[in-house]
Nucleic acid binder design. Sequence first.
DNA 1: TCAAAAGTGGACGACGGTTTCAACTTCAAA
DNA 2: TTTGAAGTTGAAACCGTCGTCCACTTTTGA
Lengths: 265, 265
Amino acid sequence: MKTEFYFNLLESFPLLWYDGGMSEMHPSRDRPLLRRDAERNRQRILAAARRLIAEQGLEVGYEEIAREADVGVGTVYRRFPNRDGLYYELFHDRVDTVVGILEDALAVEDPWEGLCQFMRRDFELQSSDRGLREFMLGHASSTELRQRSGERIQPLVAELVARARATGRLRPDVGQGDIEIILGMVGGLMDASIHVDPDLWRRYLAMVLDGIQSGSRHDEIPGKPPDQPEIEQILAGWVPPRRGKSRPRDTEPSARVDTRSKAES
Amino acid sequence: MKTEFYFNLLESFPLLWYDGGMSEMHPSRDRPLLRRDAERNRQRILAAARRLIAEQGLEVGYEEIAREADVGVGTVYRRFPNRDGLYYELFHDRVDTVVGILEDALAVEDPWEGLCQFMRRDFELQSSDRGLREFMLGHASSTELRQRSGERIQPLVAELVARARATGRLRPDVGQGDIEIILGMVGGLMDASIHVDPDLWRRYLAMVLDGIQSGSRHDEIPGKPPDQPEIEQILAGWVPPRRGKSRPRDTEPSARVDTRSKAES
DNA sequence: TCAAAAGTGGACGACGGTTTCAACTTCAAA
DNA sequence: TTTGAAGTTGAAACCGTCGTCCACTTTTGA
């Protein structure tokens, strides 16, 4: 019997296999044991990806991750043949965090306060990690995980909304879907403004929360209006700059029209 | 004297030159006369770009614009050596439109109503044109024009805000900068949701407007909360999908690990 | 210690977009 | 009608990124 135990194990229980990163189907099962060096590299890749994605967003190149992890690109591709798998590994446990936040929020006596606390803490969670932000907002990849996350999260949000509405504090014409859209809307702002003023989102979240409660409670709006230079910076970051950075060419375009003709005459 | 009059003209008044598309510096001056065929092509290019950018956003390829205009790529590059110039030509007159909207709004008796009307009509303007939306939100290119637009627009907005605040209807802790951020925030939502529900932005604009007035006037929130499939679609469109569309590879990733070893044994 | 399976790395081809350019066509002044 | 500059064209070079492939190295059980 020359078979290595881990390979044997895989043959016997194919459903337990490490599925090449497409772990969406059975995320809580064990991965097969990797050879020690492979496992070490896997962890280095994850650590590098976590670092880079947290600061640059989901779209960092595999090339760069590999460099950061001090590993070849091939290795990254072997371990995570597609981004879904990588994102899954990086983010699936965050779902638990969000669920935890929701449970905390449901435990608050005043459901309206609970709803506010949920939204606030959700943003606080996202504020440290651009990749997480993009992921939660709804990136094209990783639809699988997001959908399954939604199945855990939505009922809790619905419950929170129902309770808040029952107390009369939440306007009756605001539904669960609105909360999700508001999360996206303010999240989008946060993504744009985070490097200018990491707490700016609190201001606009407060405004919206004021807008969706039926009493005119008028909680104080935190912070102060951004000034012009800040706005400039925020807007500039809103739509992400073009990927293939187009070199600006020579800066003086007008004087060129006739260089040739002059020379030829 | 063999000189064509238009070339002569350029030599004499270099400041009047068509500046290769970088018209930011003196936009209201005449362009030099182009040869008739060149002018015709220029218009075809602009028309094509207008069409494509309105529906696909700022980043359509020059290749595609050229195809649509039935012109060679080279021609497009000759006419618009950089995107700034193209965007300028497409959008600079929109600034007048916005200024018009602002003047209308300032003419409304109730300054608060004026402010609301301005925001509503600004969004209505943007809703028909994805490129305009991206441009106004603050695309990396075209910083020049946007800055100069700001100089015309901001004072008017400031005036509107000041008046609305003077009546007491606008909360005193809301400033001009807030309005611009709100425009961006709701604009981001509109961009994401427009193909799902072109009027969804009205709902969230209404919420925010409710949140920033000091009385609890509670205007009706138009529309109704989006349902789950709609939200799914909206979120999926929020962060633009990766440019180089990654082909999903073969859908069955796990069974592949050992194909080679099997074959070789 | 050794063989063979697992794992590695980076050169390489594909791709999609941008930019150039030399050969060609069109225009309009004379 | 002629002439020469202006204008056009599209193929080809270029560029950055993605994902694959395979000759090479490492690990592991015996």
